[in-house]
């Protein structure tokens, strides 16, 4: 398969296989007028397989969203066909409007105009809790 290299943009590498589509959706890339290449199950030396995401423009991207999905990715910033920076990410301390609280008793289920906020309470086990009701964030409850 041949995917053209990009002149300006991002190459998000070392994405755990299966996660690229989540990043694509969480960054709302389908709504932007951009060239995007989403490649899944690429053979990798580090892990058995990985995903890759190429974005053909240097847009503002929310690194916290990417880090939340997959903190081990590498973000290559490409300018004039050259990688000018390689970024490593860390789990964000706070997620704002990335995920939705699943607790029907939480105030976020009724109060209008309230940000959905989650705080990292256990870094080792990647546990996030709702800022309001402290309910643990359930996997994949994203706000797409």
């Amino acid at each position: 398969m041949n995917i053209d290299t990009i002149k300006n943009g991002y190459v998000i590498d070392h994405i755990t296989a299966g996660n690229a589509i989540k990043i694509y959706r969480l960054l709302n890339l389908e709504k932007l007028d951009l060239v995007v290449a989403l490649i899944t199950n690429v053979k990798s030396n580090k892990t058995k397989t990985k995903d890759l995401l190429k974005i053909g423009k240097l847009i503002d991207i929310d690194l916290d969203k990417i880090a939340f999905i997959d903190p081990d990715v590498t973000i290559n910033i490409v300018k004039n066909n050259k990688i000018i920076e390689k970024k490593k990410l860390e789990l964000p301390e706070r997620l704002i409007n990335v995920c939705k609280c699943n607790n029907p008793r939480c105030i976020t289920s009724t109060e209008r105009n309230l940000d959905q906020i989650f705080n990292l309470t256990d870094k080792e086990n990647k546990v996030y809790r709702c800022n309001y009701c402290e309910m643990m964030l359930e996997k994949d409850k994203f706000l797409y």
Binding site: N103, R105, C106, I107, T108, S109, T110, E111, L114, C130, N131, Y132, C133, E134, M135
Partner: peptide
Amino acid sequence: RHPKEGAPAVASKRASIPIINAGDGGH
């Protein structure tokens, strides 16, 4: 007192006077 969990935390952000949580759901 409010049946929704986290309601007093929301209230404290909007209030200009002290808020005491007198119970928020099962929280």
